[in-house]
Amino acid sequence: MDLHSQLIEKYRALNKIHSLMIEVTHRCPCSCVHCFQVRNNENELTLAEFSDIFGQLRDEGAINIGITGGEPFARGDLAAVIESARKHGFFLSILTTGLMIGRAEADMLEKLRVYSAEISLLGATPETHDTLMNVPGAFDRMTRAVSLLRERRINVALKTTVMRQNYRELQDMKALCARLGATFQANLTVSPRLDGERTPQDFLLTGEEIAAIDPELINGGLIPGEDMKGGAVLSCNAGKNSAAISPQGDVYPCILMRKKVGSLRERSLRDIWHDSPAPFLEELRTLKPEDVADCSKCGMRAYCRRCPGVTYIETGSLTAKSPTACHCAAGIAAGIRGRSGQGD
């Protein structure tokens, strides 16, 4: 195990935050059809509050921060927020639609040494991307943003949520990424909204549609015994060495596991995470893979990308099966069987 991996394991053993996502705002120019966010645009953390939080995170030992939203650039003071984080030495990535990145914004990210950008890609054509994002011209603005960032040697990953409207374009999306110098990541999981509302899942592929996809195109390749190794995630890093913070300073174990464990406007991070952790955090930290009994011995596990956060939204339980993950795993397994000539 290399030193980085050992370090992450040590953070996990000590329940120290290594990486986290910070939602700097929920404001966003898009209305993506599958968006899981429940927007709260009130009373966002101020720059001064962020500065204090970054200091607490440095003292905690945190290393990586993903700046996300909403659309982070919807905050007029985003550069100052990022600069404040950089003063504490964090490695920063930004998760964005790319719609608001012009030359000045790209220069700012380069100057402040933002390590990488993760940008939403919802189709290989303007028609598909713009329709799913509900913003005319979004595709052209996004591809320009990618070019501006790559010219500045900022790593870019284009991330796709695979849906019924775009799954036929996956190969072209991958080729687009190659042309733009970006990496491509496609995820089959369409999460319910964070409040449990399931409309986004109307766009989830059917089993037959999933089976028709080349497994190499989704989740970086889903070949059992290769990158899947241990199979479905039954007990993840959420609440241990990873966390999330909302625009109002609420702390969560993960951006998808929307169980508030404290407010940084009321308590210190140390108190929330270490001195008086909420019962939910304690539960997460003691959860073992075998506690997820239905999944730990499941024959589909090698094909499954169960996310404990999505499972919690779907079922309110940390130990239940995820209906979405089961659905996707069955489709993937059928597709792989079919391609290897074992189909019926």
């Binding site: 370090l7 040590k10 030992g61 945190a62 290393i63 030495g89 964090f90």
Partner: peptide, 24 residues
Amino acid sequence: GGLCIRELGGAVIIITETGDELHS
């Protein structure tokens, strides 16, 4: 300048600005 310096379990961790080198 630019180093990421953290304390973990009583040890100082230093990561260079590029993230390429980690010293414990």
